[in-house]
Design a binder for these strands. Structure first.
Length: 262
DNA sequence: GCGACAG
DNA sequence: ATCTTGTCGC
């Protein structure tokens, strides 16, 4: 699978100001409304289903592991609970991690991995933010727009924005909206006067153990071609026995495996 | 100027 | 993200 929008492929040689400028263009090209090829109700990680295969979407999880100046980017594609394709790429890194510019560090390597992928996923989960980003152009948004594929951002920490309710001691399945507040800036096309109330994602308590240490929620947000509400629904449906959704967890494990083998 | 900040 | 054993709890 190759970029549908080559002009937006993250270029690590740009200046910081140019990177931020490109992010505004990416954000303007992004759609934070549902434009999916499948019915979210047909999504699950169950091995068997009454739903015919043609109606069960291919869902990809993307994650990376690092070794010195190299990134190992892994992609695992699932149909229900079955792995249908798995690829990885090793790429030399060129820029350090800078909050807000993560996609310029990790985006190139991720595009390299997608070039190895034969199938075309109907949905891709990325490890990081989507619309929950200063310029509404987090990793999931940037990659979603570049590949023009429905994309979701799954982060373990909140980059910016504000949870409507406090996020401690919550039961499994609980969620609360993340509002733009004063951290997520409006695009030129957004209504600046009401934008701070915009729901740019959700905090979602995917797991909780009764008598054990408190588990932090996930922070999920639309990357491209999916709404905030559908984003949480999909992450919920893709959940398994662990904190991270299955596609992401499997990509995480696969990236680690590839790293050990160099 | 100060604080905050995905992976 | 990464460096890393044992250990507390179900």
């Amino acid at each position: 699978m190759n970029p549908a929008r080559p002009e937006f492929v993250p270029d690590a040689s740009l200046s910081r100001a140019e990177m931020e400028e490109l992010q505004w263009d990416v954000a303007s090209a992004a759609a934070f409304t549902d434009d999916l090829s499948f019915d979210p109700a047909n999504v699950s990680t169950a091995q068997s289903s009454l739903v015919p295969d043609e109606e069960r979407p291919l869902v990809a999880g993307v994650d990376q592991a690092f070794l010195d100046d190299y990134a190992v980017s892994a992609i695992v594609v699932l149909r229900g609970g079955e792995v249908v394709e798995r690829v990885h790429a090793v790429t030399e890194l060129s820029i350090p991690y800078i909050p807000g510019l993560l996609s310029f560090r990790e985006g190139g390597p991720i595009v390299d991995a997608f070039a190895e992928l034969d199938c075309e996923p109907d949905l891709v989960l990325f490890d990081g933010s989507g619309r929950i980003h200063f310029r509404q152009a987090g990793l999931a948004t940037h990659m979603g727009v570049v590949l023009d594929v429905p994309a979701i951002g799954v982060a373990k920490n909140l980059l910016c924005g504000r949870a409507r309710e406090s996020v401690g001691q919550r039961p499994e399945g609980w969620r609360t909206p993340i509002e733009a507040a004063d951290g997520v800036k409006p695009r030129p096309t957004d209504d600046a006067s009401t934008f701070s109330d915009t729901v740019v994602g959700y905090a979602y308590q995917s797991r909780q153990y009764p008598n054990s240490k408190q588990i932090n929620p996930l922070y999920v947000s639309p990357g491209h071609r999916v709404s905030a509400e559908t984003t949480v629904e999909l992450v919920e449906r893709l959940g398994g026995d662990y904190k991270l959704p299955e596609p992401t967890r499997l990509a995480d494990a696969y990236a680690d495996d590839c790293k050990r083998e160099y």
